[in-house]
């Protein structure tokens, strides 16, 4: 197993009085695919969003504990939050193209951080669209609104957009749940390729998907981590009763 990229210590998170994450202690290994699994409502999405502090957006949210990324605690930092967020690309459940053209979607992250030279942008946009196998499909319609693409294309566009800001970590929240099987497969294959360069964290409740791509697994239930470990150990030799039941499909 690779060395940890993210190290979470005693993380507790409340929405108002609701205790959403309870004493989370875990690591996320560098340049591997970590899958967070568990039944819906177990806090897996919240855990992922707390990694780039999107939980700040919820007014009544309070967090305690440490999230160390490259040795820096992002919950208690003087550094600009936008820089931390830029380290992490986000892929949501459904594609959310920004209300602009295909080209500008990819160029958005570069533009807002001050890279505005046309030639530079052209090159990067092409590069990232190629990386997600979208270039050939959209090269003649870059100026069209991103909403005109199919859902599968949109999700790949969102991936390209996330990669374009040169992140170190990719956060993906059930990225294939709205996609058709073929688009899902493309995304999964992309992930397997990308893990040589990036640390990938993916939330899913599709057991078979987790088995196909996970290197490291975190299993959550009702806001707690029940079990975690390298994928092989986790799937072949689970320790906890809840995990065994879940893997057998006794609950969803």
């Amino acid at each position: 197993m690779n060395k940890p990229k993210i190290n979470i210590q005693d993380l507790n998170l409340y929405y108002g009085k609701q205790h959403i994450l309870k004493n989370i202690n875990t690591i996320i290994p560098e340049r591997q695919i970590t899958v967070i699994m568990g039944p819906s409502g177990c806090g897996k999405t919240t855990l992922m969003k707390s990694l780039n502090r999107l939980t700040d957006l919820t007014p009544d949210c309070s967090v305690s504990g440490k999230i160390m990324i490259d040795g820096q605690n992002i919950l208690n930092t003087t550094e600009d939050i936008t820089k931390i967020r830029k380290k992490m690309g986000l892929l949501a459940q459904r594609p959310y193209p920004l209300p602009m053209s295909i080209y500008n979607n990819v160029a958005y992250g570069l533009r807002i951080s001050g890279r505005k030279k046309r030639r530079f942008l052209d090159k990067r946009v092409e590069h990232y669209l190629r990386q997600v196998n979208l270039w050939n499909e959209v090269k003649d319609r870059l100026k069209e609104p991103a909403g005109t693409l199919s859902i599968g294309q949109q999700q790949r566009l969102c991936l390209a957009r996330g990669l374009a800001v040169d992140p170190e970590i990719i956060l993906a929240d059930e990225p294939t749940s709205a996609l058709d099987p073929i688009s899902s497969q493309t995304i999964e294959e992309k992930f397997k390729e990308l893990k040589n360069q990036f640390t990938i964290v993916m939330v899913t409740h599709i057991l078979r998907q987790a088995k196909r791509i996970a290197d490291y697994v975190i299993f959550m239930y009702l806001g707690e981590i029940i079990e975690q470990g390298p994928a092989k150990d986790f799937f072949e030799n689970p320790q906890e009763e809840i995990t065994k039941d879940y893997l057998k499909g006794l609950f969803y």
């Binding site: 957006l57 986000l90 996330g162």
Partner: peptide
């Protein structure tokens, strides 16, 4: 999610 997307791009 749209807001989150933009924020996560820095």
């Amino acid at each position: 999610e749209l807001k989150e997307t933009s924020l996560s791009l820095g």
